[in-house]
Simulated scan of single mutants.
Amino acid sequence: MPAIPRRFLVHTITVEEYLGDTSKGPKYGPARTVRCLVDEKTRAVRSPAGEQVTSTSTAYAGPEEQDVPPLSRVTLPSGRVTKVILTARRDGRGLGTPNHVEIQLE
């Protein structure tokens, strides 16, 4: 199956990519909007470091979206500001599932 249908991407989030730490705190890139579907469901996920953490939201974006680095700052449609735990690219390779990018959020 090709990409997740655009008609399902009914939300937009603002993403500021994490660039690293400075002496004044975290540094972020310019804000960009991402069209997605936001699911505000709490679940346990593994961080890139292997720790089990709680994700309060997941954003599902089209496969054309670039990966969003962990610790990037995200503003949800509700106005809540959160951070990325991890990003996973989902490619069904012909299995009938929609290809998409999954962004797990704190």
Rank of each mutant, 00 (worst) to 15 (best):
L95N: 14
V15S: 05
V45E: 14
R93K: 11
T12V: 08
V53C: 10
G62Y: 00
G96T: 13
H11F: 08
R89L: 12
I13E: 05
T22C: 04
P63Y: 05
F8N: 11
D91V: 13
T58M: 09
A44F: 03
P30I: 01
D67K: 00
V68A: 03
D91M: 11
E106M: 08
V68W: 02
G96H: 10
V34A: 05
A31E: 12
K27C: 08
A49L: 15
P48K: 04
E64T: 02
P98Y: 14
S55H: 03
E106Q: 09
I4A: 07
V74D: 04
V10N: 07
T82W: 13
T12I: 03
E64V: 02
P26D: 04
P26K: 03
E51L: 07
K41G: 08
P2N: 12
S78M: 09
P98A: 13
T97N: 12
S57M: 08
I85W: 00
K27Q: 14
Q104N: 13
K83M: 10
V81S: 12
L105F: 13
R80F: 11
A88K: 15
I4D: 06
H100P: 12
M1K: 07
R32Q: 13
G50T: 02
G20V: 12
L19C: 08
C36D: 02
T75K: 09
S47Y: 02
T22A: 10
F8H: 14
Q66Y: 04
M1N: 07
V10G: 04
E16M: 11
H100G: 03
T54I: 15
A44I: 09
T42D: 10
R90M: 15
G20H: 07
D67I: 00
T87C: 13
V53F: 07
E51S: 11
R89Q: 10
P30M: 06
R73V: 06
L71S: 11
R90T: 14
L9K: 01
M1L: 10
A44T: 14
L71W: 10
H100W: 11
P30C: 03
K27P: 01
P77M: 08
V34W: 00
I85E: 01
G62M: 03
D39C: 01
Y28V: 04
S78D: 14
V101H: 04
E16A: 13
P77V: 05
E40H: 02
Y18G: 05
L105K: 06
A3V: 02
V34K: 00
P26L: 06
P48R: 00
R35I: 00
R32Y: 11
I13P: 03
T75Q: 07
G96E: 15
L71N: 15
S57F: 09
R89H: 12
G96Y: 15
T82N: 04
E64C: 01
A88H: 10
D39H: 02
V53N: 06
K83S: 15
A59W: 01
R35H: 04
R80S: 12
T12P: 00
K24C: 09
A88N: 11
S47G: 04
R46G: 02
H100V: 03
T54G: 02
L9R: 01
E106S: 10
R43W: 08
L76C: 04
G29Y: 01
R90H: 14
L95K: 09
T42E: 13
I13H: 03
L19D: 07
Y60V: 12
V74N: 07
G29R: 02
T42C: 00
G62I: 03
R7W: 12
S78K: 07
G25C: 12
R73K: 14
P48C: 03
